[in-house]
Simulated assay, not measured.
Amino acid sequence: MDTEMLFKMLCGIVAGVMVVYYFRRQKKLLSIAIGALTGCAALFIVNKYGGNFGVNVPLNLFNVSGSLVLGAPFVVFVVIMNFL
């Protein structure tokens, strides 16, 4: 199993967990908005300052949409997979 397949499987698992988490909250829209905001903020911070630590995370459609839907855990997975 290569790292790309492992990454996609982990993103699918995290997406399922996040959907369940969002729909169990009382304030669903607020939870989704905060998750998207923290995910985008984490992605932009890693993109801007990641080069200082040897992490290159480009801003492309996949990364931006992943951080919007999955939040900060997606960015953590991207950084981890970057080191593998």
Rank of each mutant, 00 (worst) to 15 (best):
F77V: 02
V14W: 01
M18L: 15
F77H: 12
F53Q: 12
P73H: 01
E4G: 08
N60P: 12
K8D: 08
M9A: 15
M81A: 14
K27F: 07
F83A: 15
N63S: 13
K8L: 13
Y49H: 09
L43P: 07
G71A: 11
I45R: 05
L68S: 08
N82R: 10
L61A: 08
N60Y: 09
K8M: 11
A33S: 11
V14P: 00
S67D: 03
F53D: 01
G66F: 03
N63K: 01
I32P: 02
F44Y: 14
L29V: 08
S67K: 01
F23R: 09
F74L: 09
C11H: 08
P73T: 09
N56I: 14
N47P: 08
P58R: 04
L30Q: 13
Y22A: 06
L37I: 04
Y49V: 10
F44E: 07
N63F: 01
F53G: 00
V19Q: 05
K48E: 09
C11N: 05
G54P: 03
V20A: 13
K48I: 02
V17T: 12
G50R: 13
F23W: 13
G51L: 15
G54Q: 15
V76A: 15
T3D: 13
T3C: 01
L10V: 07
M1S: 09
V19K: 15
C40Y: 01
C40V: 09
E4F: 07
G54L: 14
T38C: 14
F77I: 13
N56C: 04
L61M: 13
A42I: 04
Y22D: 01
F53S: 05
Y21P: 00
C11G: 08
Y22Q: 02
G12T: 07
G12E: 11
L6S: 06
V69I: 11
V64K: 00
G54S: 15
V76G: 11
K27S: 14
S67F: 00
G66V: 03
C11Q: 09
V57R: 02
Y49C: 04
V78Y: 03
N47G: 06
L84E: 10
A15G: 02
C40Q: 03
L84H: 06
N56F: 07
L10E: 09
V64S: 00
A72G: 09
G51R: 15
A15Y: 02
A15T: 05
